[in-house]
């Protein structure tokens, strides 16, 4: 069976089962399966997941991948963050260090939402 999320060890069968159970958007799949929240923060698995979800639900990948899908944040040690001087509010976020654009919209909050 094909592994979709290497970090969290989730294979295609598990993804398909979840989709059949009614988890048909990225947010709920992410929370239900914990796919895409490993050390690589979905860099590896999100593109695959989007393709499977598109195929299974007959949608186009662009319809599924919301503008809100946050590019992964690079792990940053708390010590490094603590030493950096305080910046002004909303100056950016962890991912911005890699030049990630802000994909958030007003309605759909950044970070896609939670745990």
């Amino acid at each position: 069976m094909r592994v979709i999320c290497r970090c969290e060890d989730i294979d295609e069968e598990e993804v398909l089962r979840a989709i059949r159970e009614g988890y048909t958007d990225l947010e709920s799949l992410k929370r239900h399966l914990r796919i895409g929240i490993g050390p690589c923060q979905g860099r590896t698995c999100m593109p695959l997941l989007i393709r499977i979800l598109a195929r299974e639900t007959g949608r186009r990948p662009e319809e599924i991948a919301p503008t809100t899908f946050r590019p992964p944040v690079k792990p940053i040690p708390l010590g490094v963050l603590a030493d950096r001087p305080g910046e002004s509010e909303n100056a950016g976020r962890a991912g911005d260090a890699e030049g990630d654009a802000d994909h958030g919209t007003e309605d759909e909050p950044e970070g896609g939402g939670g745990r």
Partner: peptide, 30 residues
């Protein structure tokens, strides 16, 4: 929206309370 300001403040306070947390890696914020 998540802010950088929050990351810094949180990192400063949490590493003050538990200094060894300096080595922990942050991977997500929301």
């Amino acid at each position: 929206k998540g802010s950088l300001n929050f990351l810094h403040r949180m990192a400063r306070e949490i590493t003050h309370i538990i200094p060894s947390f300096r080595n922990l890696n942050v991977v997500r914020q929301w």
